[in-house]
Design a protein around this nucleic acid. Structure first.
Lengths: 146, 146
DNA sequence: TTCCGTGCAAACAATTTGCAATAGA
DNA sequence: TCTATTGCAAATTGTTTGCACGGAA
């Protein structure tokens, strides 16, 4: 059940002077085993399946540690709580602000916009940390025919 | 001091069955007189210059009313509280997640990306409500030479 | 043995809500 | 008058923090 990514992350924690605790391993395993982006609450629930007594504050502190070590990151999908994922392939999210559905798009999608804004303003956009928001195809259609 | 936009907004409130109160007028005037996007707190402070006793809950309720009537909208500039502005010309914000500086860009900037995403996924992005985040020119440079 | 990590409860910021008092139309 | 609006205080949500105890190294 424990993948190489988990072991690698534990090793980074150790070599940074941190301790490899049961709770931290459990958080990493949950993130590793879950393709979705989870809220701190959802991580806590998942961890509790095997370790019923973890405190939510510990989850937050662990996620913060993982982010400091660049082992995990949080993203904002529109309104609502932050969502967490292990470091890995970069992709971006389009979030429907009507129904909440999420479409994932590859990083390269933003290359033209990125170049354009960089040339025009010197600003280097990163649509990763904050997602793009709008209307999904279904909701556009629903609005159009109303 | 009281512009046509203020009168027009008051009129919309009235014709929707709402009452034109002193507090509501003051909120609209503050938004109208301020080119920036203000937080609810900042609106409250500005309103208190002329009406020292407005309650923050009233500010929130007024802003919510204005949004329901499409007279004002809130935007999210990265982390931090929502910011409010009267309805008007559409532009978008690039927010530096390092130093917090904000660059405004015209709506048309996003036309190519919009078309591309619409064709590829049917998703209609609206970079207005949530801003784009990244690094401003100065912070990119600062990182590069570190 | 030494600190680091954790649980717990309290603090926090931004916002929302219930309810009785008040003030527009 | 009659009901929308307000003030006030308390509740909510997501997250952070102080402190004393307990467990990795």
């Amino acid at each position: 059940m424990s993948s190489q990514r988990v072991e690698a992350a534990i090793e980074v924690i150790r070599s940074s002077g941190g301790r490899a605790t049961v709770d931290r391993r459990a958080v990493i395993e949950v993130l590793d085993g879950n393709p979705d982006h989870l809220t701190a609450d959802e991580v806590a629930d998942a961890v509790r399946a095997s370790h019923p007594d973890v405190n939510l504050a510990t989850i937050y502190r662990t996620l913060e540690l993982l982010e400091r070590l660049e082992l995990a990151f949080h993203v904002h999908l529109g309104h609502g709580p932050s969502r967490w994922h292990l470091a890995g392939e970069v992709h971006h999210h389009l979030v429907c602000e009507r129904c909440g559905s999420v479409v994932e798009v590859p990083d390269a999608t933003f290359d033209p916009l990125r170049r354009q804004l960089l040339d025009a303003t010197g600003f280097a956009v990163d649509p990763h940390h904050f997602s793009l928001v709008g209307r999904c195809a279904d909701c556009v259609e629903r609005d159009r025919t109303r």
